[in-house]
């Protein structure tokens, strides 16, 4: 019976994530607009944009290879697979044994490589520039994530996200400096991975400092829709990850009856809304940094993550 509930929860989770992704992006944009004193577009606008773009035939450059056509599907596939593994409203979904933090990092890397290669496919200067920067920034973001994972893995005893969420919800881990530092590191990585301010600006094109948008300049039609959707899924994935690990309250435990899911769902929506609000506020308050300041930003995140792990060794050694 648990298996059936696990399958149902998983299916609900995937449907939820798939539908929430464009909505979340829309909400963040709307909140930002309100904070900056504009009226802002309807939060449903990104969904409509996607559906419109999907109906359009893409225009490919004459020398584009099959990479340009295959890469958006790979990127979306990797993002969906990653998002399917991060628990949202309930634990003990059927993919729970699969939901490993390092694997999620690997799936994100798969999507990143697909995007970088698509950017290089036509041989335009912007695409190569964006690909080079994206891969270079990831070179510092990934160790920061792994070091944060080290802290989580020591506290929870595993890198399995489901088990980490359970340990953080049920185990009396207390407030710890290490967790705070890991949170800082993971937030910095999330900002960089999602091309948000101050690392990159998600709402500009054709700026010399851009990273993410530079790689998909040649994409159009349904390919562009897929790229945009992959980016939205990635944002949802990261926010869900942060809320699953650091805000574990409200989540329905494994094997809980469906009426507990409603509570979990409400908590999840509230948590995601709060994170979206925080993101919008942060982005409105802060200026984008120079592109060669990004390594310092990510390097600081990496070192703080490391510091968190070191303090954890101290406190585990003390008790």
């Amino acid at each position: 019976m648990a298996l059936v509930w696990g399958i149902i929860a998983q299916a609900l989770h995937i449907a939820l994530i798939l539908a929430a992704a464009p909505l979340l992006t829309g909400v963040v944009r709307w909140l930002k607009a309100r904070m900056m004193g504009r009226r802002g577009a309807d939060p449903l606008q990104p969904t409509r944009d996607l559906l419109k773009l999907l109906r359009k035939t893409p225009v490919l450059a004459e020398n584009a290879s099959a990479v340009s056509r295959a890469a958006p599907y790979i990127a979306v596939g990797a993002a969906v697979a990653g998002a399917a593994l991060v628990p949202s409203f309930a634990r003990g979904m059927v993919f729970a044994p699969l939901s490993d933090l390092i694997l999620v990092a690997g799936l994100l890397a798969l999507g990143r490589v697909a995007m970088a290669l698509a950017g290089m496919d036509v041989g335009t200067p912007f695409g190569g520039l964006g690909a080079a920067r994206e891969m270079s920034f990831a070179a510092l973001a990934e160790p920061a994530l792994v070091v944060a994972a080290l802290t989580l893995a020591i506290l929870a005893g595993t890198t399995n996200l489901d088990a980490i969420a359970a340990a953080f919800r049920d185990g009396g881990l207390g407030l710890r400096v290490s967790l705070g530092l890991a949170l800082v590191a993971m937030v910095a990585v999330a900002i960089a991975e999602n091309a948000r301010i101050p690392v990159d600006n998600p709402s500009t094109h054709l700026e010399l400092t851009m990273v993410h948008e530079a790689m998909i300049l040649e994409a159009s039609g349904r390919h562009l829709a897929l790229w945009e959707y992959a980016a939205m899924l990635r944002l949802t994935l990261w926010l869900a990850l942060l809320s699953a690990v650091f805000l574990p309250f409200g989540q329905a435990p494994a094997g809980a009856a469906p009426h507990v899911w409603v509570v979990g769902l409400a908590a999840w929506v509230a948590k995601m809304g709060a994170l979206a609000l925080a993101l919008a506020g942060f982005e409105s308050a802060i200026a984008k940094m120079r592109v060669f300041r990004v390594p310092e930003f990510l390097g600081a995140a990496l070192l703080l993550g490391l510091l968190g792990a070191i303090y954890l060794f101290v406190s585990t050694g003390l008790t």
Partner: peptide, 9 residues
């Protein structure tokens, strides 16, 4: 613990 950590941060 958290306040001390904050000072260090």
């Amino acid at each position: 613990h958290l306040l001390g950590g904050g000072v260090l941060l």
